[in-house]
């Protein structure tokens, strides 16, 4: 059954046509990597899926509910769609634990004790069980990004959107974050990731979607698509990244 469904989605920034009729169907438990050149509309696509950007034509639904950017809709949507950003966006005035507990307490109305239990469990999961009381600024980039993952997981989302979440990290810290994602994939989490990590896309991902000029240019099984691309554009792209 499809969890995220896009049907001929068009998106404009003013006169600029960014997404030109995107069709996409993501099933529960699938790991989908979105690749493509900078400016091809990858971030915009993710942001439309969780209502951060509005789209002008077509339809998007998550878990059979239509996505619009109405405030109240976005908030309901937030219960099933988690998102992680390139630059973490942790709340600097809160400790790691408070960062994770904030939304469960004020959005899901969980008790403080309950939220704390969840936060600790999620921190263990991302390998940062000892950082509950630390402030984000004391952590490395890789650790901050793992806290951001824990914060998203604490809302128990059905799908996790990741926008180049390892791009701002020092190379030696990328592995830790990818390991967490791999673990989540194994546990059956639905992941949609914009990424430049081709090895990860091939080995962990089920499907690759190649975006070019605002369109889904080519898509398919990750191993097949990356080793045997059909279009000239994807060949060039793979050639340039590898």
């Amino acid at each position: 059954m499809s969890l995220v469904k896009l049907d001929q989605v068009h998106k404009y920034y003013g006169d600029f046509h960014v997404l030109k009729g995107i069709d996409l169907d993501i099933k529960a438990g699938e790991v989908v990597s979105i690749i493509g050149k900078s400016g091809s509309g990858k971030s915009t696509l993710l942001r439309c899926i969780n209502g951060l950007e509005e789209y002008q034509q077509g339809g998007i639904s998550v878990d059979d509910k239509e996505v619009t950017s109405e405030d109240i809709q976005v908030r309901r949507l937030a219960l099933s769609v988690g998102m992680i950003f390139q630059n973490f966006n942790l709340f600097p005035h809160l400790t790691v634990g408070e960062n994770i507990m904030l939304a469960p307490t004020i959005v899901l109305k969980k008790s403080k004790a309950e939220a704390q239990t969840i936060a600790k469990a999620m921190l263990e999961k991302v390998g940062l069980g000892d950082k509950f009381g630390s402030y984000p600024e004391k952590l490395s980039g890789g650790q901050q990004q793992r806290v951001a993952i824990a914060r998203a997981l604490a809302m128990n989302p059905k799908v996790l959107l990741c926008d180049e979440i390892t791009s701002a990290l020092d190379p030696e810290l990328v592995g830790d974050v990818l390991k967490v994602l791999e673990q989540l994939a194994k546990e059956g989490m639905t992941l949609v990731l914009v990424t430049h990590e081709m090895n990860f896309a091939r080995d962990v991902g089920d499907r690759v979607v190649f975006m070019h000029q605002g369109k889904v240019w080519e898509e398919g099984n990750s191993k097949k698509l990356l080793s045997d691309p059909e279009t000239e554009e994807l060949k060039q792209f793979i050639g340039a990244v590898l």
Binding site: V74, A78, M83, F91, A103
Partner: peptide, 12 residues
């Protein structure tokens, strides 16, 4: 990003 992170976590 502070607004966006809050929004995707479901905060009003």
């Amino acid at each position: 990003g502070q607004w966006e992170a809050s929004r995707v976590l479901g905060l009003s």
